[in-house]
Amino acid sequence: MAYALQQLINGVALGMIYGLIAVGYTMVYGIIGMINFAHGDIFMVGAFISLISFVLISSGGWAAGPGAILLVLLVSMAVTALYGWSVERVAYRPLRGSFRLAPLISAIGMSIVLQNYVQVAQGARVKPMESIVTGGVELWHGNGFAVSISTMQAMIVIVTLVVLAVFTWLVTRTPLGRAMRACEQDRKMAGLLGIDTDRTISITFVIGAALAAVAGTMYLLRYGVIDFYIGFLAGVKAFTAAVLGGIGSLPGAVLGGLLIGLIETFWSAYFSVQYKDVATFAILVITLIFMPTGLLGRAEVEKV
């Protein structure tokens, strides 16, 4: 029981990270109907920017307190958002309105570019970082097993919830959010009604990248090592989360992320670590077979 509770806490913390990345996939999919394959690598870029910022701060003699973390988070979000914007501008915008597979291939190309660019620029070696956020709270002690929540895990959950709250407010209550939803429904019509669709799409990429940067920072703080290749698996898992939750649905993305995090954690804890990815993907396949549009996705009515 205690063990299971501990896994639940671990799973939620991991799931939050997946959820943050999944939101980026689902938003882009909702608005332009493409799989932004490079999004996982945007997450990786975010983690690297955070790493560089942390090293810069600590070499500048700054204590790594909450202020430093906040500063790093903001820097990472800003620079990663710029990456997100540039990727859209260079690789996707020229293909707007073109046929569906072209942006997908372009996105896969961009993913390869980002991975290898970071490898060339920052080296292929794994980058370790000593943990900054330490400590935790013991919640409960049962059957000789202590259930604890680390400060890090609490921080992941709190930061994610705050970011998602701000983000939800942004897309539901602001004119910008309205423009985004309008573009999602019918881009041509939105354009005819005077919405700058290109700008709206750009902002979608910027927001998605900023959220991925938050996920990257949390990942770096939680695991303490990153390399240029972390984006692929995290990206695939997050995309799986987005599909599981019903692609295009924002709450679905977070729910999907949490589910993937929990499945992965519980499978590793009770069955085998080696097959945790197989478990994740198998559950995805099974879900889709029985619910072809995911958990919260709108059922597609076949227009005849």
């Binding site: 690789a91 942006p103 291939i105 190309g109 961009m110 993913s111 390869i112 570019v113 980002l114």
Partner: peptide
């Protein structure tokens, strides 16, 4: 890196 860039450029 060039391979990925070529994919983007050709598309």
């Amino acid at each position: 890196l060039a391979f990925g860039a070529a994919m983007v450029v050709i598309m």
